[in-house]
């Protein structure tokens, strides 16, 4: 029996009001379990990023409920003032761009959130080195992000997302800037992380070639979220 990592009930998101009201999500209901890598697909502007940001406690929903693990974090209002604490303790973010802090070196970028969470510098660095080793960039630990290639930076960004040992990883088009080979290796890496660390991962993607590597597909349709199985004919590359 899989454990729930994310549960969303009747989630609604509107932007603006009156004439400028934009209805983005109108009652989303879905669940993602621990160890699952789920693809989130929809046309551009359909609300993928918005949905991810609501689950990530960045964007406040209009109404509904959100569960992260067994903690209810939103019930028509945030249930804690410190949404940022939830973010740094439970969630790892990955984006299309690496968004590393340019004035910190690789290992500082990776250890920033764990150290903020109270992990000692030595321990955070030990964990970070293990992660960097895992992503084959341990030799770059003391380089600045500007000295790294796009692929290396993206791997550092993934290491950063994992550094706080999150229960959930929210990845917004993490492969959009990478070529096919690198994309495949990143998504495979995410799948391995999901299994190894029992993390729930939602990955926004426009790349159909990535879908077979995922466990399931969430699709935004008519402002609602529907769950689909991965199409058989595209399975395995």
């Amino acid at each position: 029996m899989a454990e729930q990592a994310i549960k969303v009930e009747n989630l609604v998101k509107h932007f603006g009001k009156d004439e400028s009201l934009v209805r983005v999500i109108e009652g989303a209901d879905f669940q993602v379990d621990k160890g699952e890598l789920v693809a989130l697909i929809a046309p551009s502007g359909a609300g993928k990023t918005t949905l991810l940001m609501m689950i990530g406690c960045v964007e406040e929903p209009t109404s509904g409920t959100i569960w992260l693990g067994d903690e209810k974090v939103y019930d028509n209002a945030w249930l804690t003032k410190e949404t940022r604490k939830i973010r740094r303790e439970k969630i790892g973010f990955i984006f299309q761009a690496h968004y590393l802090i340019p004035f910190l070196n690789v290992i500082e970028n990776v250890t920033l959130v764990p150290q903020t969470n109270g992990v000692s510098k030595a321990e955070a660095e030990k964990d970070a080195m293990a992660l960097l080793d895992y992503f084959d960039i341990a030799d770059k630990a003391h380089s600045m992000s500007s000295q790294l290639s796009g692929g290396q930076n993206q791997r550092v960004a993934i290491a950063r997302a994992l550094a706080n040992k999150p229960q959930i990883i929210l990845a917004d088009e993490p492969t959009a800037a990478l070529d096919l080979t690198r994309s495949v290796s990143v998504v495979k890496m995410l799948k391995k992380i999901a299994i190894d660390q029992d993390v729930a991962i939602i990955m926004v993607t426009h790349d159909e070639a990535m879908l077979p590597l995922c466990d399931r597909i969430l699709k935004i349709e008519d402002k609602k979220v529907v769950s689909q199985a991965v199409p058989e004919n595209t399975k395995m590359i």
Partner: peptide, 16 residues
């Protein structure tokens, strides 16, 4: 601003 927004996004508190 960009870095500050990222730091806030990944959960770095305002105080820092």
């Amino acid at each position: 601003m960009k870095e500050i927004a990222i730091m806030k996004l990944i959960g770095i508190p305002n105080s820092m």
